[in-house]
Design a protein around this nucleic acid. Structure first.
Lengths: 340, 340
DNA sequence: GTTAGCACTCTAGGGTGACGAGTGCTAAAA
DNA sequence: TTTTAGCACTCGTCACCCTAGAGTGCTAAC
């Protein structure tokens, strides 16, 4: 079906269109990529490629542009992830390492780098605490009515919340409770905490226990949405396809809805490793004109988050692929290092 | 200088221009706002208003639009903050109260509300921890090498960081240290913590103390930038003046630079209460075509943060003013309530 | 199987002219 | 002295037309 020359023509079309954002004509290909044949021959090949569905003619007297299917073939077969030069690589390591003690800043920095290095929109999902395991629980007396609950989660994440008792409580009881809760709940995931707590505390610790239970169960664990860090939103407007405001609006709207966005990214990155999702393959209508390159990152062997880049389907796949891969790895390395 | 009729004409021009974004002509004013005089008379008044600098003619055969100076007069003299209906007010209170236990979510919610209620870009600066006072310091043993440092700050904010010791330490020493540090450093502001810590720990606590000191001093307090929560960025594009991408880009760029943005907002809100800054009054060039309405919020009597709305100079000042005022107050109330 | 030539299609961009909104000025009216 | 009507003039907008240029598909020749 696809002889060597067709493949070369397809590659030429994809490369040229990614570069120029203009439909690619037969003459352009003949001139710029010396395939050793005339424009007429290339036209014939293009007609075939169009029939298979790899390229599209926006209107009758224009050149061709790749279809989603064409991009898919390009990504799966033709593309070679571009190597990132060693000096740039180490420069990045250096910048990232500077934030390693403050996970939120670290994640934000990764997001910035991701957008700067790709010139597209970058999304980084913060480590998903729901999947993390409890390492320690501490109850700290603040004053007569307020208690500070501290949860230390496995890869070095800390969650805390202040709760207020309606009645006075006995501060003396807190250390013992902390210890017991810790020893009983160690290893439970944050997501399962609520159920486990109810089972554990039920009927013990008297008044304090019951009150704590109520409050903790209802508040501590509720609706902990994943945080998404966004960078490079304006880079959208560098892309000719989004010079039209109405077309950009859909995407912008999606980007502003952090929840939909993090859902999207976590859906797309459900398999570990780098994933490319092209145009209409995307589950959300707003980005049917976009491609998304995602990757998961992990602590040790455990996947705990994802990063992604969103750009037009006419995306520099090779570069984006490499950058996403590298930054996801850096992030994993740093987080893994942290808990050693 | 400004007789009654001139003022009415100015008000008409501002009102109409805010509504329509189209230069306002003499005939329109005569027709829509019945001042009881003919267009020709209004033209004369307009010529005067233009001479004083309150209005501007974009080109010779167009109507007039208010100048920054005109808006300033409008805001200072003519505008009456619009009343917010009681049912809407309580609806908002309800929505906000739902997040009161998680300050970050609360602040985010305020930001959303701010943009929804005004249709402009909303910025909320998270409580500025630098100014908060230390309430309690706790050191918690995580394992043989890692210590969790918890700082409870005055209006119910909690900061924590995990530090790693190069040598083993004695976990038994931590509770006593916590207690001593707390009693000595209570009341010190977060900003001054570093200096105070050095003074306090110096030479005490042996190895552990020195090690802790090094690490805490260098890491805990460093570069704690204020967080800014942004909402309604896309609403920019609803405004006709930003339909031109190139003009919107400057603003968008600013919005993406969180640091500049929080600097801007905190500069503009340096006096407590609601502040309106119009067009070229703004210190940053990117928003010389914009106005900003800001307000501080406080815990008790202490100002600890600010919120703001950014829109075109052609902004619905009356409404924005009220909304900003109300939400800043709500936020203050809730935070103040929290620490009681 | 490849290529040159040709008629055809379509878009982008520039130019034109009518139209409408708005102005300033002058002279008359109040 | 203030207000108003009338008029000539200025621009910006929009619809329209036209052309240049790029690209195609088809056919016939190589």
């Amino acid at each position: 079906m696809l002889n060597e020359r067709k493949i070369m023509v397809l590659q030429a079309i994809v490369d040229d269109y990614i570069r120029s954002a203009e439909p690619v004509g037969s003459r352009t290909i003949a001139r710029r990529y010396n395939l050793g044949v005339s424009p007429a021959t290339i036209r014939n090949e293009m007609a075939d490629l169009e029939e298979i569905g790899y390229i599209i003619q926006p209107h009758i007297s224009a050149g061709r542009i790749p279809s989603d299917k064409g991009y898919r073939f390009y990504v799966d077969v033709l593309m070679e992830p571009s190597a990132i030069p060693e000096n740039q690589r180490s420069e990045i390591q250096r910048r990232v390492a500077a934030y390693k003690h403050e996970i939120e800043l670290l994640v934000q920095e990764i997001s910035k780098l991701l957008s700067v290095l790709t010139n597209y929109v970058a999304v980084v999902l913060a480590p998903q605490i729901n999947l993390c395991m409890i390492e320690q629980i501490q109850l700290l007396a603040l004053d007569e009515y307020r208690i500070l609950v501290i949860l230390v989660l496995h890869p070095g994440l800390v969650q805390n919340r202040i709760i207020r008792m309606t009645n006075r409580y006995d501060p003396e009881a807190l250390p013992r409770m902390s210890q017991q809760l810790t020893s009983r709940l160690q290893g439970v995931t944050y997501r399962d905490l609520k159920a486990s707590l109810i089972k554990e505390i039920q009927g013990e610790y008297g008044d304090l226990g019951t009150a704590l239970l109520d409050i903790i169960a209802s508040e501590l664990v509720d609706s902990k949405q994943e945080k998404a860090f966004l960078s490079g939103t304006i880079s959208i407007f560098e892309q000719p396809e989004f010079r039209d405001l109405d077309r950009a609006k859909g995407l912008l709207g999606l980007l502003e809805q952090k929840e939909s966005l993090s859902n999207l990214i976590s859906t797309l990155s459900r398999y570990s490793g780098v994933q490319v999702t092209i145009g209409h393959e995307n589950p959300v209508e707003e980005i049917h004109e976009c491609s998304v390159v995602t990757s998961t990152y992990s602590v040790g062997n455990e996947v705990i988050g994802a990063i992604g880049v969103i750009g037009p389907t006419r995306m520099e796949y090779a570069n984006v692929y490499s950058v996403v891969e590298m930054l996801a790895n850096s992030l994993s390395d740093i987080l893994t290092e942290l808990i050693k």
